[in-house]
Amino acid sequence: MKGGGFRIYAICYLIFLYAPIIILPLFAFNDATVIAFPLSGFTTKWFAEMTTQPALGQAVKNSLIIAVSASVLATTLGVFAARASTRYDFPFKGGIMGLIMLPLVLPEIIVAVSLLVVLLGLGVNLSILTVILGHVLICTPFTIAILSSAFQSLDRSLEEAAYDLGETAVSTFRLIILPLVMPGIISSLLISFTISLDEFIIAFFLAGTEVTLPVYIFSQFRFPQAVPVIMALGTILVGMSILLLTIAEYFRRRGLARSGAKDTGGFL
């Protein structure tokens, strides 16, 4: 084993990273209303209790609608921008791409309040739709990051070869480019879905009277007796995100393997 000291440190660091996720299921199955140690006993009643809360059901439904719409829209916008930035050169490209990628570093509260001001100023009613608009904004930079690497690893002569063999620009896109970046598209859909599902502040500001899953969770933190159910819900959510991320990672790697590119790391 190489890097002895570093390895121990890195493993400790991983434990630090995973600490909350490891503790989460402990309380989800703990037979006590108070979220504290020591644990008292095993139960699955918190999971059962989730089904009895109509507000939760509505929040899940809203969140799913938002996450699906936002991920499809963001990925579509991402395909356009990623293709444009990897294939073409145009004046002010840096500035334009910089603006599009800005939400990656911009605090979400800034995005949220600025959108809120404009939407209210325009007289738009806050609803699921306004949350979707905000989520597309913050998901798009992630989709571009993923899709750019997919488009980048695409050898330009593949397109030319298809064209040379008699295909048109459109059929070349359908037969060659699309299949080769498909893993990137799937991974980008899954990532934006995960981001949108988990996003709190924008939904908090822009959802109006509608409630999304994170907004619901946040509101439940105020009621100590509701917290165990949230732990159960969280366990399911975490499990789902890990599953989605694993699938996304699988597709991202398959995409790289297909185009024969070297793996250069994760999503970010």
Partner: peptide, 20 residues
């Protein structure tokens, strides 16, 4: 006359074999 309508075909430096 665009490339897809010319009576020529090309072997690319990178070969451009469709990987999928």
């Amino acid at each position: 006359v665009p490339a897809n309508k010319r009576p020529t075909n090309m072997v690319f430096q990178s070969y451009a074999i469709f990987p999928h």
